[in-house]
Design a binder for these strands. Structure first.
Lengths: 354, 354
DNA sequence: TTTAGCACTCTCGGCGGGAGAGTGCTAAGC
DNA sequence: GCTTAGCACTCTCCCGCCGAGAGTGCTAAA
């Protein structure tokens, strides 16, 4: 399957690259003739045919059928991305557009996620996916309890990275306003700076101890806190732009469309895939059969982690047909990851409440 | 187009009904033979053919082509819904399922909306749509400001119906904790029970007056409030289950699929359509050409308003191919509207803070 | 008024052939 | 020895044709 010990000659590489690039552009099998014509190497179609036959033998090209042009394989895309592609520099106005949208608009981290997934799908024309942080891993900035009517209390939890979660709690008996305030202050002062997971564990321990001592106020406080912090442990996923893909020629038949929607409906698998994709940091690309999720659709994933400081909060990336403009998309995803991280850091952290 | 002054004879109606019911079930043009066979009126296919020819002339049936069976028109569906359909009674276990999901699970009104749209699409196999209340029309229950780091303040606005909105505000200078607390209390005490729109207008007036008097604290409070209440005036829309429709035979070609997604992408038009649909209260049905939005897709809308007391908060309903099980779907949408209204009333209002 | 019978129409699926595109191979040229 | 022109071959795609099947409309008889 590999070139017999020898690496590809420069000419082989030129031709392979040309095939890949034009296939990405046209979505149609590339013929030797078209390479000969528009390529800058002054070779005839026949010569190129020979090379292409070799490339096919080595596993870089494939033919849909005997008398069709050739199509790049996954191996070809990998090679292309690793060694042949010159990544496009993101135009200044595109950078500005992204930065304005991420730094200017959002009022909280949730909106930031929304804008990001929007930008992803808008700028790449693929499906944008953003995995939001797991609650257990976020760091508490402040808690607040707001009395509603009767025995209802609204619990507001804010993380250092700017995420806000609300939860209405029904208590056993009405809690006076001042007490709620004391509770909010106590919790914020004692637990800010720790992850919600740590806090929960600590709370449970404290509750066990406290139950013996019977400090009524503290017991109630801890109970409120436990219920307020009892948040969905699963990370959220934001998927945007699925319908945009309908225009891609690879989704010309209904079966695939249906399978695509099934794929994107299974959020849990999406998260797993994205997370395993970015293990190790930096932009990573999964192409087709690298994963069972995308192989039958011939889809690729380009993803990168985002976070504040050295703490990874989540993942963002795009899904789309393996035939995509990696030159543009990889730097874009990269840049969006960085910009989102910066936006999270700058807008929400600020000086720590110690 | 109408039966010549005469109403339809009972036999005509029986046959028409049979055609509609079997077409809803099978999605295929109904032949005279099939009506003769499985219908309980002991008539031959030929007789039925005559009647069906009349019904076609009167505009209740249509033929895709000469040698196909017949298909109900929009007029037929209307007639069916108005006078021929016996609405299915919702089975007890389905009722229970709905009530458990709406009363038990949700921690706030937003989750309630989410669960509702889910239920809609799950139980009807159509696209569930929920229009959430416009912020200006909701009634304030409580405001709260939470200090974050630096000059950041989190503003939490809670409405009587249980909706919570968060907004991070950046102030000119750091505001001490106590002052924020005073502000929260002042605003809640003075403005609870009014709609956000009223409050905003009143705030603006107060600010104009106050600026002259130069009460520093009040000026700051009002400024904070103005920014906190400056929420998105557009109602939100929650669309669920679009991909579920892909299995419907009416979406067998890609063009329609694409148009469907375009339709659902335009949230603003969806809102307009749903709102005009429920003008007048109670469940309403729009079929096909009643609206430009659905006519080219041959889609229908079944929608109903929801709200607390006599105040309409929003709209919920389903979209789907005109060929749908109105007998089941209409009572279901109705019941969901009622249950959502009840859930909103019971869980979140409680005794008013006077 | 209903019904049996029959001719007619239209769709749908399969078949075949011609055009077009692209290849692989061979033999000649540099 | 590498490159290239030429040519036969293969495969897809499109179009038109045909027969089967389904359903109708009409007519004439019950």
């Amino acid at each position: 399957m590999q070139p017999t010990n020898q690496p590809l000659t420069p000419r082989d590489r030129d031709i392979l690259k040309d095939v890949i690039v034009t296939y990405i552009l046209t979505a149609e099998p590339v013929s030797s003739r078209s390479v000969a014509k528009h390529g800058q190497l002054g070779l005839s179609a026949a010569t190129i045919r020979n090379v292409m036959a070799d490339l096919e033998e080595w596993g870089f090209l494939a033919q849909p059928h005997t008398s069709a042009g050739r199509v790049p394989t996954r191996a070809a895309y990998h090679l292309f991305i690793r060694t042949m592609m010159e990544t496009r520099v993101i135009p200044a106005r595109e950078r500005r557009y992204i930065e304005e949208n991420l730094k200017g608009v959002p009022a909280d981290a949730d909106q930031l996620m929304e804008v990001t997934s929007h930008l992803l799908s808008e700028l790449t024309n693929q499906v944008g996916v953003v995995v939001t942080p797991t609650w257990g891993d976020t760091v508490l900035k402040a808690v607040d309890f707001v009395p509603l009517s009767g025995r209802k209390v609204l619990c507001v939890v804010v993380s250092t990275s700017g995420f806000v979660e609300n939860k209405v709690i029904e208590t056993d008996e009405a809690v006076p306003r001042e007490e709620l305030l004391r509770t909010s202050n106590y919790l914020t002062e004692n637990f800010a700076g720790q992850t919600l997971r740590e806090i929960r564990d600590r709370l449970l321990r404290r509750m066990a101890e406290e139950r013996a001592q019977m400090d009524r106020w503290l017991t109630k406080t801890l109970e409120l806190a436990r219920r307020g912090f009892d948040l969905d442990p699963k990370p959220g996923v934001r998927v945007e732009g699925t319908s945009g893909l309908l225009n891609q020629p690879e989704l010309a038949d209904l079966g695939r469309v249906r399978r695509m929607f099934e794929t994107f409906a299974d959020k849990a698998r999406l998260v797993t895939l994205l997370n395993q994709c970015v293990r190790g940091g930096g932009v990573r690309v999964l192409i087709g059969e690298d994963s069972d999720l995308t192989s039958e659709l011939d889809f690729s994933v380009v993803a990168t982690p985002y976070g504040v400081g050295d703490r990874t909060l989540g993942t963002l990336g795009i899904f789309g047909p393996s035939r995509m403009e990696y030159q543009k998309i990889i730097p874009l995803v990269d840049f969006l990851g960085e910009t989102l991280s910066r936006a999270l850091a700058e807008s929400f952290s600020g000086p720590e409440t110690k």
